[in-house]
Structures are given as structure tokens and as C-alpha cells.
Computed example of a mutant assay.
Amino acid sequence: MNPTIINIVSGKGGTGKTLLACVLADMLGNAPDAKTIVVDLDIFVRGLTSLLYFHREEKLHIVEKHKLTVSDFFVEKIRYPNKDLGIVKYRSFDVLPAVHRIDQKLDYQDLAPNTRHEAKVILSALLSCLADDYRYIILDSRAGYDELIAATHEISTISICVEEQDQISKVTSDNLISQLDEQSTPTFRLINKARGVKSPNDIDFSARSVTDIGAIPFDMDILNNFGTSGFWDVTGRSLYRWALANAWNTLNSKLQFGTRLSLPRLSPIMSEAVESRIGFLTLKDRVFFVYGLVLAMFGAGYSLVGSDFLTIFKDDPLRVGASIMGIVGFSMAVTVLIRRPKR
């Protein structure tokens, strides 16, 4: 069976495509018969390779010198039939790093393919060296559009354009996709760091289409823990992972890849919808915030409707008024935090 090649792209930098590629690879790698590898094609920024650097306790050398990294294919621009790839095992998936050493200096002039055809030859040579038993190959491409991105898109099964909710990100994604659409490879759109949403329907696209596969809520825990030793523990119980699994299952339903992700998650506040609206708080703060409001409103409400309500109303009307003000104030705070943004 030929592997499914998933190309992760973005119209601009900073959309979180590298993190998304890693979390998706980890989920797929844990699925039955879904061996997965991620290839770091962003050889200058090398965000994916940086994760390996921290995973290996900040050792500068990621790969042994006699083995091949992604940059080797672009420097020499030839096949390496007798050499091994410097593939590194990372959690449930494999990674082909961008460079041997995390601080390795590269000359852009030596690496940039002159034509789309040249880029395609290099990429095809790289992919031909991968083992045949990979079910999914995820390409972490760099942001923007050039001959390499065009070639990467052409050799892939699909491309996923990761964008943010703001208009600048949408425009840059529109521009990228208009270039990619010149080829037959399908491109799908995925919103990352979305605020105030609980489903794809909460995102205001100027033109909805079958290529929209979901929205991943902004999650403060992911932002605070990215690159730390506790990152994957946090990710395992996060809204981010839950939403990305849903987006993948939407894509899987459209294209019938055969790998469905089952990641049940019980929200600590009993509602993913409410939790996604307050994703700017950490998980601990979300729990304290919501249950604090519940307790406060219960206490205020009981002072109004408790068994001694008539006595309170007669002897201390200011207490009743203060309780009403408290309930109204808390209701206003909750409304501001969880209301759906108007477009």
C-alpha cells in the first residue's frame, strides 16, 4: 500500500503548523497499523528538529554525521542509495530531522531549488529512501509559497493549510491556496488558535466549502507548556488534542483513509463548548473559574430563596439588594466570557 503523504502548509509563519504536525503524528502513530513519520522540510526555522533537541536533553547533535538529514538532499541534490537516513524515534512516531546539529549553519543559495522540477526530483529521492511500511508521511513545510512548496504539494496526497482566525491569516491562506489549486492535489483548510468557537460553524468564512475540516480552539495550556518536559502530559488532556482528532476524523470521512481517531474526553466542567470559550485560561483556572461562579451564584441565590427569605426581606432589605446585584454581576461576567463573537 502506498503511504498517504500529508503536506502541512501555511500562508504565513506562526500559525502553529509544526505543533499540529507533531500532535497529529502522535495520535496517528498510536492508532493500529498506522506507522507515521514526520519530515522537517523547514530546514532554516527547523521547529520540528528543535523539539528533538529538547527531547534529547539539549544535545546539539541530533543525528550522527554518517547518516542523512533533509538538508543533505538539498546540498548534494543527488540520490543516496547506500546511505541511511538519520531517522529519530519520537514518542509514537518517527522524525527525519532537518539538520545534523541544531545550530548548523546553511547557505540558502546552496539549498534553494532553481525550478519546481528540480525540487520535485530532490523530494522524490528523499521519499524513495523511506521504509515501505509507513502508512502516513507528514511533511512539515515552511510558510509561504515558492518552488519547493509547489513541488511538495504536487507529490503529496493532500495538503492541509493551517491558518488563524484573523483576516491577515485568511488573506495569506487564500493567496497560498490559489497558487496550490493550479495542481490536482486537494487542499484542505484548518483553523488553529480559534477563539470563542466550539465547532467549524462558528468560523466566519466568506465562502464555506467542502475543504473546511475544522477549528481548533485556542488553549492556554498548550501555549504555556510548549517545549517543556510536561508538554505531552498536558496535551493528552487538552481541548487542542480533542479538536484536532475531530478535524482528522472529518478529513478521514471525506477521503476514506481508514484511520479513525477515538479520543473520548470528559470536560472537567462538563461542557467542551463552555470550556472552549474560556481557553485563554489554563485548565486549572477554568475549573476554579466555573465552579467558583457556580458556588457564588448558589450562595447568592440561597440568600434570596432560602427558608428565611421573608425574614431577610423584612429585616435587611439591603442584603436582598446586594444578592440581586451579585447575581446580575456574575451573569454579566459569564455572558462577556462565553458569548459567541458577532461577525
Rank of each mutant, 00 (worst) to 15 (best):
L304H: 06
G329W: 07
Y134I: 01
H117I: 15
T152M: 13
C22S: 12
Y240K: 01
K59F: 00
A98W: 10
I203S: 04
G258T: 10
W242L: 07
N2D: 13
F44Y: 15
K89D: 15
V274P: 03
G214L: 06
K342R: 14
A215I: 12
L127M: 14
C161G: 13
I8Y: 00
I158T: 02
L263S: 02
R265Y: 15
I191A: 11
A150R: 02
Q167D: 09
D103H: 12
A215H: 05
P341H: 08
G86L: 11
Y90M: 14
G306W: 05
L123W: 06
G258R: 00
A151Y: 07
Y108T: 10
T36Q: 02
R208N: 09
V274H: 01
D132K: 14
N225M: 05
F231G: 01
G258M: 02
L310Y: 08
T228V: 01
R189N: 06
Q109G: 11
G47M: 06
Q183H: 11
A300R: 02
H55T: 03
A131I: 00
M332Q: 11
L255Y: 14
I278N: 07
Y108V: 14
T235M: 13
P341C: 06
L223F: 11
E182F: 07
A31M: 04
K77T: 10
V88A: 06
L60S: 12
F73M: 08
F218R: 07
F188M: 09
D146T: 12
D308S: 10
T115S: 15
R260H: 03
G258V: 06
E147S: 09
A296C: 08
V162P: 04
G227P: 01
I43S: 02
T235C: 15
D315V: 03
L139K: 05
P200L: 15
G47Y: 03
E58V: 03
L51D: 03
D315Q: 09
F226E: 01
K314D: 09
A34C: 13
N2G: 04
I213Y: 11
F231E: 04
V63D: 05
L310D: 13
E272G: 00
E64M: 08
S307H: 11
V23P: 00
S173H: 00
F188G: 04
L261W: 02
L68E: 06
I43K: 00
F289K: 04
L96V: 12
E154F: 11
D103C: 10
K89I: 10
V99T: 14
S323F: 11
G14S: 04
R340T: 10
I216A: 05
G230R: 10
I213N: 10
L310H: 06
E76T: 07
A296M: 10
I78S: 14
